[in-house]
Structures are given as structure tokens and as C-alpha cells.
């Protein structure tokens, strides 16, 4: 039990500190690395409460794919230039009210969730379907995700698909004058259309029709 507590507090301290460092560190790339550390320690916490499937999916999806793309974008920024703009300029102050409103909203949401959990546990009672000791975490998740919540699952899939199509449509631009390769054309090229054998007479040369 003591070991459990030690691990829990280690991971949660790392998670909280790195979450603070995400916003506090001045180098944007460092913030992304702290974000990754945060994701990893949160997935460790998931594993500690027995949700090993969620923990692993967190690692694969967030750390293995989403954070890589974050890092991609952030690395392209010029860090030195950014420092001048964001920390010395005055224009950043108009973002503060929006940020404050959003953070208060999230704060109250968390309070409502935790309060409900504390005082009305039956709302969140999913014991009947999830925590059967005989089947693994992954099986029980699949059993409720693909039966009771199949419509929600499919709708969220559709929303993701729409978002993806939207992102592609927004960033796609047709440029004229770009030469595209056609693999079929390249492969299906015969010797006869590429090579021509000519008899060259001395001192006359060959006239190519071009």
C-alpha cells in the first residue's frame, strides 16, 4: 500500500509540475516536451487505477501521434522572434479576459463533476457493467462501447471524419503549373516511345523534331 502511495504521489507531482511548466516555460518547444511528460505521467496514473487500456491508448494517440504533430508545428516557429512579440509587446493583454472566462468555466465544470461524484455517487454508478473482476478492462470497455453506446460512438466517429474533411478542404489549394508524376504513366512507358535508333552520317548530325 505504501509503495502504491509513493508511486501515486510521484506521478501526480510530476504531472502537476509539468502542467505548470507547459505554461511557464518561455521556450515553446520546451513547453511541448513538458506536455508530453504530462501525458506520460497521466497515462501512468491511468494504469495505476487499473485502466490499463486507457493508459496505453493515451500513450499511443496523444504522445505517439498528437504531440508529434504539435512538436512539428512548434519547431517551425522562430522561438527568438516569438519571445519579443509575446513577452515584450502590449497586444497580448486583450487575450486575458477570454482566457479568464474559459478557465473559470472549466473550474466550475470540474467542481460540478467532483461534487456530483462525492454527494450523488449513484449517478456515476457503472459498477454493474464495468468492474467485473472476471473480465479484463479492455473487454468490459468494448462490451459497453459497442452495445449501449454504439450510436454515440458512431456519431463521434462521424464528427472526427467531418473535422478531417474540413481541415483538408480548408488547406487544400490547387496550384497551376505544377508537374505531377503519374506512376502508371511512368511504368507503362514502352521502349518504342522513349528510344529511337538513328543512323547518323558523319559531319551531318541528326535533326530532332522538337
Amino acid at each position: 500500500m505504501i509503495a502504491h502511495a509513493i508511486f501515486f504521489y510521484t506521478f501526480s507531482i510530476i504531472a502537476v509540475v509539468s502542467a505548470i511548466m507547459v505554461t511557464a516555460s518561455k521556450n515553446t518547444v520546451h513547453s511541448v516536451f513538458f506536455l508530453i511528460l504530462d501525458f506520460i505521467s497521466i497515462s501512468c496514473l491511468f494504469i495505476m487505477i487499473g485502466a490499463e487500456f486507457l493508459g496505453m491508448i493515451m500513450l499511443i494517440v496523444y504522445v505517439g501521434a498528437v504531440a508529434v504533430l504539435f512538436l512539428f508545428v512548434v519547431m517551425m516557429l522562430n522561438v527568438a522572434q516569438q519571445k519579443n512579440q509575446w513577452f515584450a509587446g502590449q497586444q497580448s493583454s486583450r487575450h486575458i479576459p477570454v482566457g479568464l472566462i474559459i478557465s473559470t468555466l472549466i473550474f466550475f465544470e470540474i467542481i460540478i463533476v467532483i461534487g456530483g461524484w462525492k454527494y450523488k455517487p449513484e449517478i456515476f454508478d457503472i459498477n454493474n457493467s464495468i468492474s467485473q473482476a472476471s473480465i479484463s478492462n479492455t473487454h468490459s470497455l468494448g462490451q459497453i462501447l459497442y452495445t449501449d453506446y454504439i450510436h454515440v460512438f458512431q456519431i463521434s466517429g462521424m464528427i472526427l471524419l467531418v473535422a478531417m474533411v474540413g481541415a483538408i478542404v480548408l488547406t487544400f489549394r490547387q496550384r497551376s503549373g505544377v508537374k505531377r508524376q503519374s506512376y502508371i504513366k511512368q511504368i507503362s512507358r514502352e521502349r518504342a516511345e522513349g528510344v529511337e535508333v538513328l543512323e547518323v552520317q558523319s559531319n551531318k548530325g541528326v535533326k530532332l523534331d522538337d
Partner: peptide, 24 residues
Amino acid sequence: INVGILYLFAVSSLGVYGIIMGGW
């Protein structure tokens, strides 16, 4: 562990970080 194959997949997908960090 129950999710052994997911663990393997997760670790191999984390492998990209060593390379990105070194390159950057």
C-alpha cells in the same frame, strides 16, 4: 500484462521522440 501488444506499440511509437529531440 493484459495489454502487452498495446504496450509494445506504444513504446515503438514513442521511439520517434529520440530522433526529433536529437534533430532539433
